[in-house]
Design a protein around this nucleic acid. Structure first.
Lengths: 207, 207
DNA sequence: TAGATTGTTAATCGATTAACAATC
DNA sequence: TAGATTGTTAATCGATTAACAATC
């Protein structure tokens, strides 16, 4: 059912489809079409149909897609038909904001711990958590079999922390530090650096 | 000098090159090659040379690229050889973290004001700013001729706020809200939604 | 039924890579 | 000079789009 070799760029669009479908469902809609969905996302209807066809047949000719059904299928494909535990490393301003963010849980993720290597912060509360020191980080992550981490530390520390995470068995890292990480092939990394996006946009601005 | 029709995907890689070059410069390096730069970024040397060739000839055969010179050129091309004023809308946890982030200014951006539509927040300090009410937002942005905005409001408010920003003359929006915005063609939008990235990665994780 | 929309194929379009002459 | 690396061309690769039979 999950196809053999789906292009990564296609996989990357599925979460976007899922997000738009969730909004439609919240608005009370039950059925949509590739055209409607594409219109919302600035994507052609052909591309949406092609992307989905990589994984199966989810629609009905003449009618379109049942929104709840397609959401279920996408969640299954993306493996977010469950809740993944996440550890967050870095309890600065950004880490604190991430820790307090309410938008993870109903999309498949739950932060279970926050770490910071500043001993002065250990034990302090952040949201519902107490900040943990990084002394036993590797061990604790391994014991709990956690596979997903978010990194909200300064760029200068990111590589070192990522290596600890990899040793602990982490296989997916969401990196907020503005730097590229070197990790083994079996570990996935995604990056968020708002400045990259800003600089991308200023290229197009008039003087 | 700035080429006629550079693919957007190429433009999007330039900030990444600039970031890596800045790190090299900070490490005291003066010269690099397309191979070394590519190795750091997981990009082929051919692609880097091809991308740069869209804008001019910046290297020397047999030697490579002068890092400071290439950085200057990239900054010029991306129009970050100046400092852009940014307004930030939304003073929740995320907005606060963004406001306190120190990483904007030496990469071409400076937040000049924070707005929040909650009257209870107006006048409260965030970092070096006092939160402003959104009553005069459009007028104030227009008067100051600000072109770049960051949006850190709930998804449910993002569209409405973006319309105000567009009316105010904003032409680039960095959207942290997990939703797609509808804006006129002359306005650029970039999105940050960490959950999209997380869901992209869980696809590849073993059960 | 008539109208609409899917899933899929083939055609098009665009991006990446390989290779190498030029040259520092 | 010999070795290295650029900038560029042509070839390859992959992604998007157009079009339509199938069918709800």
């Amino acid at each position: 059912m999950p196809a053999n070799k789906v292009p990564d760029i296609v996989v990357g669009r599925l979460p976007l489809y899922l997000r738009a479908l969730s909004q439609m469902a919240r608005d009370g809609k039950e059925i949509t079409s590739s055209q409607e969905l594409g219109g919302r996302l600035g994507i052609s209807s052909a591309q949406i149909r092609k992307d989905l066809s990589q994984f199966g047949e989810f629609g009905k000719q003449g009618t379109g897609y049942n929104i709840n059904f397609l959401m279920e299928q996408l969640k299954r494909i993306l493996k977010v038909d469950r809740v993944w535990d996440i550890v967050l490393v870095g309890a600065g301003d950004l880490g604190t904001a991430v820790a307090n963010y309410r938008g993870f849980v109903d999309r498949g993720f739950r932060i279970t711990a926050i770490y910071d290597n500043d001993p002065a912060k250990a034990g302090q509360p952040v949201g519902q958590f107490l900040i943990r020191g990084t002394g036993n980080l590797t061990e604790e992550i391994r014991t709990q079999k956690i596979k997903v981490a978010m990194l909200a530390v300064p760029a200068s520390e990111a590589q070192e922390v990522s290596e600890k995470l990899v040793k602990a068995g982490i296989e997916a890292i969401m990196c907020y530090a503005p730097t590229s990480l070197f990790v083994p092939d079996n570990v996935r990394v995604q990056y968020i650096d708002p400045v990259l996006h800003l600089q991308h946009m200023t290229y197009y601005l008039p003087e």
